[in-house]
Protein backbone atom coordinates (compact mmCIF):
# COMPACT_ATOMS: atom_id res chain seq x y z
CA UNK A 1 0.00 0.00 0.00
CA UNK A 2 2.85 2.38 0.80
CA UNK A 3 4.59 2.12 -2.58
CA UNK A 4 1.59 3.01 -4.79
CA UNK A 5 0.69 6.02 -2.64
CA UNK A 6 4.33 7.19 -2.54
CA UNK A 7 4.59 6.91 -6.34
CA UNK A 8 1.35 8.88 -6.75
CA UNK A 9 2.78 11.62 -4.49
CA UNK A 10 6.04 11.58 -6.46
CA UNK A 11 4.31 11.79 -9.84
CA UNK A 12 2.00 14.56 -8.69
CA UNK A 13 4.94 16.45 -7.15
CA UNK A 14 6.72 16.33 -10.53
CA UNK A 15 3.57 17.72 -12.18
CA UNK A 16 3.41 20.62 -9.70
CA UNK A 17 7.14 21.27 -10.16
CA UNK A 18 6.81 21.45 -13.94
CA UNK A 19 3.78 23.76 -13.73
CA UNK A 20 5.62 26.07 -11.33
CA UNK A 21 8.79 26.13 -13.45
CA UNK A 22 6.71 27.06 -16.50
CA UNK A 23 5.26 29.92 -14.46
CA UNK A 24 8.75 31.20 -13.66
CA UNK A 25 9.86 30.82 -17.28
CA UNK A 26 6.86 32.83 -18.50
CA UNK A 27 7.56 35.53 -15.86
CA UNK A 28 3.86 35.43 -15.00
CA UNK A 29 2.41 36.30 -11.59
CA UNK A 30 1.76 33.16 -9.54
CA UNK A 31 -1.73 31.96 -10.48
CA UNK A 32 -4.25 30.90 -7.84
CA UNK A 33 -4.55 27.47 -9.41
CA UNK A 34 -0.88 26.80 -8.69
CA UNK A 35 -1.59 27.35 -4.99
CA UNK A 36 -4.48 24.91 -5.26
CA UNK A 37 -2.24 22.31 -6.97
CA UNK A 38 0.31 22.81 -4.19
CA UNK A 39 -2.25 22.40 -1.40
CA UNK A 40 -3.51 19.24 -3.09
CA UNK A 41 0.08 17.93 -2.94
CA UNK A 42 0.01 18.59 0.80
CA UNK A 43 -3.23 16.61 1.12
CA UNK A 44 -1.59 13.71 -0.74
CA UNK A 45 1.47 14.00 1.52
CA UNK A 46 -0.80 13.72 4.56
CA UNK A 47 -2.35 10.57 3.07
CA UNK A 48 1.18 9.20 2.50
CA UNK A 49 2.08 10.00 6.11
CA UNK A 50 -1.00 8.19 7.41
CA UNK A 51 -0.22 5.14 5.24
CA UNK A 52 3.43 5.23 6.38
CA UNK A 53 2.38 5.33 10.04
CA UNK A 54 -0.16 2.55 9.44
CA UNK A 55 2.65 0.45 7.95
CA UNK A 56 4.48 0.76 11.28
CA UNK A 57 1.48 -0.58 13.15
CA UNK A 58 1.36 -3.52 10.70
CA UNK A 59 4.89 -4.57 11.56
CA UNK A 60 7.15 -2.56 9.22
CA UNK A 61 10.41 -1.82 11.06
CA UNK A 62 12.65 0.64 9.18
CA UNK A 63 16.41 0.42 9.69
CA UNK A 64 16.37 3.89 11.25
CA UNK A 65 13.05 4.83 12.84
CA UNK A 66 14.10 8.46 13.40
CA UNK A 67 15.07 8.88 9.74
CA UNK A 68 11.79 7.32 8.61
CA UNK A 69 9.68 9.53 10.88
CA UNK A 70 11.77 12.57 9.89
CA UNK A 71 10.98 11.99 6.22
CA UNK A 72 7.27 11.47 6.99
CA UNK A 73 7.13 14.75 8.93
CA UNK A 74 9.13 16.65 6.29
CA UNK A 75 6.80 15.46 3.51
CA UNK A 76 3.83 16.98 5.33
CA UNK A 77 5.26 20.32 6.47
CA UNK A 78 7.47 21.46 3.59
CA UNK A 79 4.82 22.76 1.20
CA UNK A 80 2.70 24.55 3.85
CA UNK A 81 5.84 26.32 5.13
CA UNK A 82 6.82 27.31 1.59
CA UNK A 83 3.33 28.62 0.77
CA UNK A 84 3.21 30.55 4.05
CA UNK A 85 6.54 32.21 3.25
CA UNK A 86 5.20 33.58 -0.07
CA UNK A 87 1.68 34.37 1.15
CA UNK A 88 1.97 38.07 0.31
CA UNK A 89 4.14 37.70 -2.79
CA UNK A 90 2.55 36.70 -6.09
CA UNK A 91 5.56 37.59 -8.22
CA UNK A 92 6.94 35.15 -10.82
CA UNK A 93 9.76 33.99 -8.56
CA UNK A 94 7.28 32.90 -5.90
CA UNK A 95 6.36 30.09 -8.33
CA UNK A 96 10.01 29.03 -8.05
CA UNK A 97 9.49 28.57 -4.31
CA UNK A 98 6.54 26.27 -5.06
CA UNK A 99 8.71 24.37 -7.58
CA UNK A 100 11.51 23.82 -5.05
CA UNK A 101 9.13 22.69 -2.30
CA UNK A 102 7.21 20.37 -4.64
CA UNK A 103 10.41 18.77 -5.94
CA UNK A 104 11.67 18.28 -2.38
CA UNK A 105 8.34 16.67 -1.40
CA UNK A 106 8.64 14.24 -4.31
CA UNK A 107 12.21 13.35 -3.36
CA UNK A 108 11.16 12.77 0.26
CA UNK A 109 8.34 10.46 -0.92
CA UNK A 110 10.91 8.36 -2.80
CA UNK A 111 13.20 8.35 0.25
CA UNK A 112 10.33 7.07 2.43
CA UNK A 113 10.09 4.05 0.13
CA UNK A 114 13.86 3.54 0.25
CA UNK A 115 14.32 3.64 4.04
CA UNK A 116 11.25 1.76 5.22
Amino acid sequence: MLDPVAWIVTGYAVLVTVAAVVGVALRAPRPRWLDQLAWMLTVLAVVLALVALAALSEGTRPESMSTYLGYVGAAVVMMPLALTSIREDRGPWSSGVVAAAALATGVVAVRIMMVR
Binding site: A82, S85, I86, E88, D89, G91, P92, W93, S94, G96, V97, A99, A100, A101
Partner: peptide
Protein backbone atom coordinates in the same frame (compact mmCIF):
# COMPACT_ATOMS: atom_id res chain seq x y z
CA UNK B 1 9.14 41.12 1.08
CA UNK B 2 11.01 42.02 -2.15
CA UNK B 3 10.50 39.41 -4.84
CA UNK B 4 13.25 37.87 -6.94
CA UNK B 5 15.38 34.78 -7.50
CA UNK B 6 16.62 34.95 -3.93
CA UNK B 7 13.23 33.55 -2.84
CA UNK B 8 14.10 30.26 -4.53
CA UNK B 9 17.60 30.30 -3.04
CA UNK B 10 16.16 30.89 0.44
CA UNK B 11 13.75 27.98 -0.02
CA UNK B 12 16.49 25.58 -1.13
Amino acid sequence: TSTGPHLVLLTV
